[in-house]
Amino acid sequence: MDPNVSSQVLREFGSEQNLLSKPDGSATFVQGDTSVCAGVYGPAEVKVSKEIYDRATLEVLIHPKVGVTSVRERAREQCVRETCEATLLSTLHPRSSLTLVLQVVHDDGSLLSCCLNAACMALLDAGLPMGHLFCGVTCAIDSEGFIIADPTAQQEKESRALMTFAIDSKERNVMMSSTKGSFSAKELQQCIAVSQKASEHIFQFYRDSVKRRYSKIL
């Protein structure tokens, strides 16, 4: 292991699907004390002004725990939308609308990655066609140059750089990245490697969760 990479394991995960009755798919995702609830609506009729003739229109909305949506939520919405658009086979539902609503229940760090994980579980629950799954991993680099995977809010506050990556389940490629702070090219590559390794645990968690759910049904 690289001396600058922290050996910290990911915080404990939790997830539950099909919680809400109104959406076509829903899920909660918990990482430590960070928790997000997601609901997927559609495919449904789309407004003519938003209609795309060869694929579905995807809208992503993130609601903070308190207060109104800010620029920060808008940036996160774009990250989640770009990731979902890259994985959804939206050409199978042309001229229709898909809406993904994410409600922040509690934020104790790594919020964007938790939003991505909740989104993937909700899309799975909705039964929408996807080319592959995806997950989000956040890494922080502290003042001494150590990389911490899945940081808490306090660790984020004390870090000099923060990065979140969306990783695909097929090739473990980076689908989306959101970065903040100062870091070197080497540190960026190290964080990507840490995130790719961490994604294996998250995809295994997805598999176990879905298996548990359907074994109950059967």
Rank of each mutant, 00 (worst) to 15 (best):
M1D: 10
M1K: 07
D2C: 00
D2Q: 00
D2P: 00
P3I: 14
S6Q: 14
R11I: 10
F13C: 03
S21C: 09
K22N: 08
P23A: 03
D24V: 09
G25C: 11
T28I: 12
V30E: 13
G32L: 07
C37A: 13
C37I: 12
G39N: 02
Y41M: 03
P43M: 08
A44G: 15
K47Y: 01
K50N: 09
R55Q: 09
A56Q: 06
I62E: 05
H63M: 00
K65P: 04
K65T: 14
K65C: 13
G67P: 04
G67W: 05
R72S: 01
R72G: 01
R74L: 15
R74P: 03
R74N: 12
R76Q: 09
C79P: 00
V80W: 09
T83R: 03
T83C: 13
T83K: 06
C84K: 01
C84P: 01
A86N: 12
T87I: 15
L88I: 08
L88N: 02
S90M: 14
L92C: 05
H93D: 14
P94N: 13
R95V: 02
S97N: 13
S97Y: 15
V101K: 09
Q103G: 01
Q103Y: 01
V104C: 08
D107H: 15
D107T: 10
G109T: 00
G109R: 02
S113N: 13
N117V: 05
A119W: 06
L124H: 13
L128N: 08
P129V: 00
P129N: 00
H132F: 12
L133M: 09
F134E: 08
C135V: 05
A140R: 03
A140H: 06
I141E: 10
S143Q: 15
I147K: 07
T152A: 09
T152V: 04
Q154W: 03
K157N: 12
E158W: 04
E158V: 03
S159W: 13
S159A: 15
R160E: 01
L162I: 15
R172I: 06
M176V: 14
S178L: 13
A185T: 15
E187Y: 08
C191Q: 06
I192L: 08
A193H: 11
V194S: 06
S195T: 02
Q196F: 02
A198R: 04
Q204G: 01
Y206Q: 10
Y206E: 04
I217R: 03
